[in-house]
Structures are given as structure tokens and as C-alpha cells.
Design a protein around this nucleic acid. Structure first.
Lengths: 131, 131
DNA sequence: CCTTCAAATTGACAATCTTCGATGTCAATG
DNA sequence: CATTGACATCGAAGATTGTCAATTTGAAGG
């Protein structure tokens, strides 16, 4: 998850008049800030695990839009600490929020990003499984 | 990137009539197939790196919708093998395609998934950088 | 208080990822 | 056909990740 600065434009040849002569880069516009790329990668990284996607899906499709850790733990062949670990990653990426009520903690999609998150899931889940 | 089956429904208590008594999971509907979750996680994983996001952004915003490896290599403080490695990951996730013309290989967004990919990038890049 | 139970945290380990340097491949060119 | 340049592949080093077992925290109830 290391990050690197884009090289200064001056470091690369400025023009490509004759396209076939040599590899003279047409450097593209200020594409994406370093911080922006890092932040976006963090969000995608939170989504880059089957368990976490399933957790999100379970929460998104649950009757009340929330699920407690014990609900989730019961749904996987995996220890409770692992589920807590995944929940923390989703929470750090601002995808879910926890609400402690009594002894239980109920997780739901972050208010206001509800539709955005469901949209991301839907986009990806439309992809055919291939082969 | 390990995957696990959802536990059988029978493994968890079936009802939650009295909400406050105990943690009796309301198990949610067949949320997400294992294969589907894995495939989706692979795609998100390909997007979960700042360098790869920047590469995608450079390609998407380039004048002709494509860039050769030397263009990209010139844009990063990183060796050419590393760029090739990232390109392979993006290609394996069916996000980009390579076209060899002469000595050069030109990469572009996969035809037909053009808009989908740009949509994913836009969704995430709208996220405020926060703190 | 003392116990119980839900959830978070810690420490350890194996597996995976990012990067690099070195080498291999393949098209163009002389 | 030998060389050059663009790109891919390989092997290794170091960092990061996912999982588990053990422990800790914190609220509820006796």
C-alpha cells in the first residue's frame, strides 16, 4: 500500500510529434492526487475480501438494515475475533458504523452513504462469473 | 483472500421473537454466492492500490484512451517491471486490455466496460479526503 | 461486588503482496 | 543474423494481511 509521487512533467519528453519514432510519452493531465489515490485505494481495499463483501451484503439486505456481531459470527465458519477484525476494517473505511445497545453492537451502512455503497456492490456483482 | 461457506441456516437459532432476551441471529437471505464474492473481491483487489488507480486514471483520461508501458513508466518513480506487474493484475481482473503494435504495447480500458470502470472510479473519487 | 456474556484487542504464524535487480522474449533495424 | 529497444517474467527481500487462541473490556444481572 505504498504510495509514490508522479514524476515531474519535466522529467519526460514533452512532445510526440512523430508517433512512430520512439516512445516519447504524451504525459496525461494531473490525473489523481496522491492523497486521493491512497484514500480511494483504502476503500477498495476494504471491499477486496469475500468475507467483508458478504458482511456488507448481509447488513445491506437485513430486515432492519443492521446486524449485531453475533448475527454475523453465526453466519461464517470463522471465529468472532476475525469478524470483529473485518468489521474494524469496514468501519475504518467509513463503510459501516457501529451502535452499541446493551451488550450488543449493531452495525449498519454509514448513514448517507447507503446508496453509494449498495451501488458499488451492485456494479461489481453484475459482472459475469466467466469461464 | 481465503473464502468460506456460509454456515447452514440450521446452525443458527431460527427466530427472534423477543428482541431483548439474547442474541438470536436473524439470519439474512442467501446474500451472496461464494464464487460471486470471490470474483467481486478480485476486482476490488485490483483497484485496491494507489499505483493501479493512478494507472487506470491515466489511461481513462489519456487523449486516445490508451497508453503504452513507457508512457506509464515515465509517470512513476518506480521500475518498469513493477508497472508491468500492476498492468498484469489489472488485465487479469479484466479491467484493461493490451494491444501490441510494433515494439510497443498499448493498454486501454476493456472495450464495453469502459463506462462501468469510469463509474467505479468516479464513485470513489467523490469521497472527501476527510481529516 | 462477582459473574456472565458480547465484543474488541493482542500476539503469533503462514500466506500473500509490492518492489527491485537480473534475465528472457520478441519485433524492428542495420 | 547480430544488435537494440520495449516489455514480460523470474527470484528474492520486506511489508502487509487473514486467521486463530488467549486475553481484556464493559455492560447486565444476580
Amino acid at each position: 500500500m505504498e504510495i509514490q509521487e508522479l514524476k515531474n512533467k519535466k522529467d519526460v519528453a514533452p512532445n510526440r510529434e512523430n508517433d512512430e519514432t520512439c516512445c516519447v510519452p504524451t504525459l496525461i493531465e494531473p490525473a489523481l492526487g496522491v492523497k486521493q489515490a491512497r484514500k480511494a485505494a483504502d476503500v477498495f481495499n476494504a471491499l477486496a475480501d469475500p468475507t467483508r463483501l458478504t458482511i456488507l451484503s448481509l447488513i445491506a439486505r437485513s430486515e432492519r438494515g443492521e446486524a449485531c456481531v453475533c448475527d454475523l459470527t453465526a453466519s461464517f465458519n470463522m471465529g468472532q475475533p476475525s469478524i470483529s477484525h473485518h468489521l474494524k476494517i469496514l468501519k475504518d473505511a467509513d463503510l459501516i458504523q457501529g451502535d452499541k445497545r446493551g451488550k450488543w453492537v449493531y452495525y449498519s451502512l454509514v448513514a448517507g452513504r447507503d446508496e453509494e455503497i449498495k451501488g458499488l456492490l451492485d456494479t461489481i456483482l453484475k459482472i459475469p462469473l466467466g469461464v
